[in-house]
Design a protein around this nucleic acid. Structure first.
Lengths: 207, 207, 207, 207
DNA sequence: AATGAATGAGAATTCATTCAT
DNA sequence: AATGAATGAATTCTCATTCAT
């Protein structure tokens, strides 16, 4: 059995494969409910039911309800970081605009897989995830952006890269989420991607 | 007695002064709780208690719990719109950058008064407020931004002003709220204001 | 102002015409709500509203909610008694069957005017009306039936007329109520009236 | 766990013995409260309390308050049907009067166990129980009466047996309940039984 | 380890009744 | 007398969590 996940760490993820599988099963069940039945439907019993385990078992893996959200936050952090690393490392000789566009496209893919989840994480994440972990994630994002931009430092506008990364991350995330959740008239994927790309490039890169 | 506010219309705001006062008292209580105790603490009983009225009275003014959030949404819509109108009308011969900066500054003032509330509104607003009212607000914001930018149409970059307004509104709002709620290291009001101003100008105005 | 009606007597009805009118207005409002909106809708506020007076005024006439039901019980008792007296006194040289039929017809008219009310009276009447008043009504009914039957005592079957009157009153009332509320298939007014007439005659009159 | 009883179907009764016991425990508690404290006292909390379980458990067995009444209706339907079947099947070479008397006696026994409950069922039953189930019961009663009377069809008076069954069932039921709940002077069990027997026989059987 | 019945605190909401105006 | 805003006890129902099996 993996160590029980408390909202505040005991940090390590479960390692044994059987446990790990159940752990992921529960997270996936929660996500499925968020997306299909709404946040209110995600009671612990319902999550257990959809995961195909008993409530008792659920509580073997998660100290309490919030711990599920916390683990989901973590998983999304992880996915986003890996995605960025992958995209940026592959970049090669591409222009900033092309790289930025790729990140936007991949992030949209990530969010579209579970927009309701991401709304809930935005809404509840801060309450549920210890600030130091949010910070840790932020730092990784900043680091990755830095890494990318510093390749040609001459062309980067902002003095405070940390702040800029913060601004651009919040902007892209919120716009994407609002787009997925509100379906504003006259915006489609193509428009969104190009506008967000423009937002990033025009803000980050020296004109 | 003002007409009870339902989540879906009965639209008109209360008019008599005593009633109006109680109405606002309840809204203010809700905001205070959001800020100090978190969204979950804002039970109808607690709101009534903090407002210094009985639950019964609260329900005389609001059809249900969500109607409170709905009324808050409305109030903030109103405040934001008035602020923008004020700032932009006063603008006179200022540069785009100066006007943008003023809007950012004023919006920061508005949000700082109740950041938790604004995060809830940003993420829950759609659930409680009828989409047509959210849309009406969006259109007003877009209209105001348009009005401003069209003064010198040659210099505006985006083709689709509606989309641009959507993107920039979401971006500024989310960044500001994240700043207020997460207090990221190395960012202060001055930095935030200038970065957001830069974000707006570099995105909206032809380079 | 008429003396306030308590669930337990202060017995006398209001006498002044204005008061009396308001009193009846409130009773009628209650009945209208029972019939059109169901028993649950008959809150004191709604009754006052439909009656066109304020709750405060309602409480000037009725000590509490139950007092309204009590007064309605009384009014129906009165109407039923008067109806029976009228029908039986007019009887003249009619056969028992004809008289019984008339009573059934008139009672059906009375119940049909407010079936929901009569259901509620059957359900709540005993709780709300002091037993001595229920008894008093019963005695009047028995008296009337006696009066009628004693004209030709030879033909009456039962030894205990009180018991018989009780049995027949309960039977007719319940059947009529069930008919009006359940609309059982295959029964219409004509069938009901003739079957109830048959029930009365075959039970009461010596074969 | 037995399937939760909804006012509208999930029809099947609980089967496992422990569950079944709890289920019955709750029903019995409700009955006890109806009889001793009145219908209004039968709040879900009070029922749970008297049953010696928590409210939560009560709601594990009953979808809502009305479902309790619905289940009681069902149980009484069952008991009444079984009783009639038993009595009528045993009948043998008895006269109609003797059979009718037996039914009355047994019904009185049934009702005396819980007269308040039976009044509530008589008057509220339709509200909580789906009409098709009420109908199903009615049909069984009619069938049983038919069965009995058709032994010697020549002697049955009514043309419409369904209507007659409806009339006689309502009459006997109401009279019996009024007797149990109002204890009218001068009536005792013996008198009641013989009068109701007379009512049945004189109404149903050709004179 | 897994199960799921039982728990009970706590939430939203209603409505009879009062009383200051 | 009449008004109707305010009160708050009481009700239904939910759901995170526990623990005996």
């Amino acid at each position: 059995m993996p160590p029980r996940v408390t909202a505040r760490p005991p940090r390590n993820q479960p390692r044994q494969s059987r446990s790990r599988a159940t752990f992921e099963l529960i997270l996936d069940a929660a996500v499925r409910i968020f997306e299909r039945e709404g946040a209110d439907a995600a009671t612990t019993s319902r999550v257990a039911e959809v995961a195909g385990v008993s409530v008792g078992t659920l509580y073997q893996y998660f100290a309490n309800r919030d711990a599920i959200l916390d683990a989901l936050q973590d998983r999304e952090f992880e996915r986003a970081t890996q995605m960025m690393q992958r995209v940026l490392s592959v970049a090669g000789p591409a222009s900033e605009r092309e790289v930025a566009r790729s990140v936007v496209v991949e992030l949209l893919r990530l969010y579209r897989a579970a927009p309701a989840l991401h709304r809930i994480l935005a809404l509840e994440g801060l309450r549920v995830t210890p600030p130091e972990r949010v910070l840790a994630f932020d730092l990784r994002v900043v680091g990755i952006i830095k890494n990318f931009l510093l390749l040609e430092p001459a062309r980067i506008r902002p003095k405070q890269l940390d702040t800029a990364a913060f601004v651009i991350y919040q902007s892209v995330r919120a716009t994407m989420l609002a787009y997925l959740l509100e379906s504003p008239a006259g915006v489609d994927d193509a428009v969104l991607v190009s506008e967000l790309t423009e937002l990033i490039v025009s803000y980050l890169v020296e004109r």
